[in-house]
Computed example of a mutant assay.
Amino acid sequence: MDFINLLKLTFCEMIGNLIDDLTDFFDDSSGLLFPNVQPDYIKYMNLSIDKSVESILKEDLPQEFCDRACNEIDIFRRKTVNEKDEWIIYLDFKTGEVLDYIKGVGGEVIGEILESRYYGRKIVAIHNHPKGYLSPPSYDNFGILRFPFQDYEIICSEDEFWILEAKGVVNNRDFKVLKKNIKALYYHSFDFAEDDESLNLIYERNLLKYLNNKININLIKKEYK
């Protein structure tokens, strides 16, 4: 076989292998295809784990969370505890697969998710509240009540984390009332706070008192100091 024919054969082989690789890539049914090509996925993977931060105990998380999901939540808290920006990941708590990674700016996360990929899943969203921001969930975190596929929201701060459980959905009118009331509690707390610490405590107390009357919402605080 002469050199030219050998070169043609080698080139055809390379093209064939490339087509096979691309086919396997787009055939991925693991749920991890899209996150793995997102810029925020790469940034998240490059965050270092703060080993000085105490690990979240599995028994402090809902019993229906699988071991892999608990491990991902623990890693998230220890990766983002020192971050100045807010991060959020969407996780299937039955399988432990992370479906989306989104990085925010400061205390805001603005990003789009493809909701259709979440149907049939059991989703928990985990995000951090950076230093300088309130520790308890904000009124925006109660968007969980609009999604039938999401049962939990976990909010991590420096020394504690919050588990917000809200199974089922509420109608648009009730959701607007709930969000409006929580927003009022948030701003009302500023009137009585002397510093960030007292603001956290006042808002936390008022929020928990208000949610006590909501049978489909459960909010739990876990401290790690």
Rank of each mutant, 00 (worst) to 15 (best):
F190E: 10
G168C: 08
R146Y: 01
S52Y: 06
G168R: 09
E160A: 15
L9K: 12
L99I: 13
L22S: 06
E64R: 09
L211R: 05
Q150G: 05
D60K: 15
E86K: 04
I49Y: 06
V170Q: 11
T95C: 10
I155H: 03
N71Q: 13
S157M: 00
D85Q: 04
A69I: 05
Y187E: 08
E72Y: 02
E204V: 07
P137W: 05
D85V: 06
V169D: 00
N36I: 14
R68F: 08
E115N: 15
I75R: 09
F175H: 14
L219S: 04
L207T: 01
I4R: 15
S135T: 13
V37A: 02
K167H: 08
P137H: 06
D191W: 03
L18W: 13
R77Y: 03
M45Y: 03
R68I: 10
I144D: 01
K222F: 04
D100V: 12
L99R: 06
A193F: 03
I220M: 11
I126C: 09
E165H: 11
G132H: 08
R117C: 01
Y118E: 06
K43C: 09
L178G: 04
L114R: 15
D20E: 15
V177I: 08
Y44K: 11
K94W: 00
N181Y: 08
D20Y: 12
E204N: 07
Y224I: 14
F65V: 05
